[in-house]
Structures are given as C-alpha cells and as structure tokens.
C-alpha cells in the first residue's frame, strides 16, 4: 500500500516528463530535419547572382531577382492596406463598441470565421472581385489586396487582444486627468497595444509570404520583372510550387528558392521580436 502510494506519483511524473520532453524534441527535430534538408540541397545554389538574376529556361537556370521584387511588392501592398484597416477596426471594436452589442458580436464572429477560411477561397474571391469586377486583372495589386483580406482577421484579432491587455486603470487615470479620448488612444493605449499588433503582424506576414493558392488566381505567375503594380508578378512561393511540380529538373532551384523564403521568414520574425523587446519598448517607456 505504502509502496504503491509512493510509486504512483513517480511513474506519473516520469510519464509526464517523457511526454513533455518527447513532444518538444519531436517538434524541434522535425523543424531541424526540414531546415537541414533545405539547406543541404539549396545552399550550394545560393549566390548573389541567384538572388538578382532573372530566371532562365522556366526557372531551371538563372535566379529569382524579379520574383523577389514581386514578392516584396505584393507584401507591401498587403501591409499598406491591412495595417491601417486592421488597427482601425481593432480600435473601433475595443474602445468604441460595447462588448455585448450586436455589431461587436457579429463583427467578431465574422472575423473568426474568415480567419479559418481556406486560402483558395480567398483566391477565387480575389479573382472574381479584384481582377474581374474592379478590373485590376492579374496583377500585383490584386494579389496584395487579396492577401490583405486574408491577413486582416488575424491582424484585427491579435491587435484587439493587445488593446484588451492594456490595464483598464490607464483609461481611468487618463480620464481623471482630463485627457481626451483621442489623446488617451494615441499616446497610451496604442503604444501599449503594440506587442499584440506585432504578434498579429508576424502571423499575418508569415501567412502572406508563404501563400500560394490565393495568389495563383490573382497576381498570376508571370516571372518577368514587374514594371508597375498593375503588372502580373510571380511570388516566391508560387515559383517554388511551379519548379517542383511542373518543371522537370527544377528541383535544385526550387530548394534554393525555398531556402530564401525560410531565411526571409526568419529575418522578419527576428526583426519583429527585436522591435518588440528593444526598439519600440524603449521608445514607449522613455520618450
């Protein structure tokens, strides 16, 4: 009896230990394996010329210069549209809508549904609305706008969480000092909500930069250097998809492009978390 009583927690603890560490190791190992594979196959093809030269022979040779440019342009359009709308909506939801109002509940519910909609649906919507109805055609603009629609729900929801995490006594003490609502919003709440916004930004940009399905129907896959936002442009993820699926002998360049994509993601992630901990934080606290 005594033995069982002392042994049971031990076994259980041991099991918990194995489970927790086992899953952690599994996740890390999977990521490392994936990364290792891509680096192994891709690193030898990576060079300055690869990053800047245009693709040749359907991408089997040459580089990804125009594709990188298109990718950044699409991402730029996406952020330029989704950031202001996202922050604005989050502010409206948190600061100017009561939690139980029909408008607030309806908006939140719709956002949660939208966040789970498969990207191919966004692609078809973008194709029908931006390309055809608005007449933007297959273009970087259409692609960026479609991505903005896709990223918005994530961005709004996490910015909203950021606002909710701001202690309510800031609002009270600001009001008690006779500060107006707009001042409180811009000088106290917005800076304090930045961490939430950054989380949304990382998730959103991560989703946008890796997007394929939504872009095939909207920004197209022309691999020439775009001359304006109304030109079609091939995003990096589409290039990888095309090389590995449709172009025989394109594997080496597909690996190199995938490596570039992962490095980009890591850079973006790193920059944002650096901003969150050092850059912006110091600014908020002392300026």
């Amino acid at each position: 009896m005594v033995e069982v009583a002392t042994q049971q927690p031990n076994t259980r603890e041991w099991l918990a230990f194995v489970l927790v560490w086992g899953s952690a190791v599994l996740v890390t190992a999977t990521f490392c394996w994936l990364l290792g594979d891509i680096i192994w196959h891709g690193l030898s093809h990576l060079s300055w010329i690869f990053l800047t030269a245009p693709p040749e022979n359907a991408g089997r040779r040459g580089g990804i210069g125009p594709i990188l440019v298109s990718t950044f342009l699409i991402l730029g359009v996406c952020l330029a549209v989704s950031l202001p709308i996202g922050i604005g909506t989050a502010v409206l939801l948190v600061e100017f809508t009561s939690d139980h109002s029909l408008f607030g509940r309806l908006t939140r519910r719709s956002l949660d549904v939208l966040a789970g909609v498969p990207s191919i649906v966004f692609g078809l919507f973008g194709n029908a609305f931006f390309c055809k109805t608005l007449g933007l055609g297959f273009s970087i603009l259409s692609g960026g706008l479609t991505l903005a629609c896709m990223v918005l729900p994530i961005l709004i929801r996490s910015t909203e969480e950021g606002f909710r995490a701001v202690p309510s006594n800031y609002r009270l003490s600001a009001a008690a000092l006779g500060l107006s609502r707009t001042t409180t919003l811009f000088h106290l709440l917005l800076p304090a909500a930045v961490p939430g916004l950054l989380v949304g930004l990382v998730l959103g940009v991560g989703r946008a930069i890796a997007e394929t399905a939504a872009l095939i129907f909207t920004s197209g896959y022309v691999d020439r250097m775009p001359e304006s936002l109304l030109d079609s442009g091939r995003a990096l993820s589409i290039h990888i998809f095309d090389l590995s699926m449709n172009v025989s002998g394109g594997d080496a360049n597909a690996y190199a492009s995938a490596l570039v994509l992962i490095i980009l993601l890591l850079i973006i992630n790193g920059t944002v978390s650096w901003l969150a901990t050092y850059g912006l934080h110091r600014k908020i606290v002392t300026v």
């Binding site: 600001a174 006779g178 908020i284 606290v285 002392t286």
Partner: peptide, 22 residues
C-alpha cells in the same frame, strides 16, 4: 466641460497608476 472639470478636480486611486512612461 468635463475635461476642464477633471483638471480642477484631481483623483488619486487606490493602486498607484503612473503611466508606463518616464
């Protein structure tokens, strides 16, 4: 004018609540 009113009537709360600024 509540802004002016609140300037004339200050309030101190139970829990000290300085802003996260300098």
């Amino acid at each position: 004018d509540v802004i002016q009113l609140r300037r004339r009537i200050g309030m101190i709360f139970q829990k000290p609540n300085p802003f996260p600024l300098s």
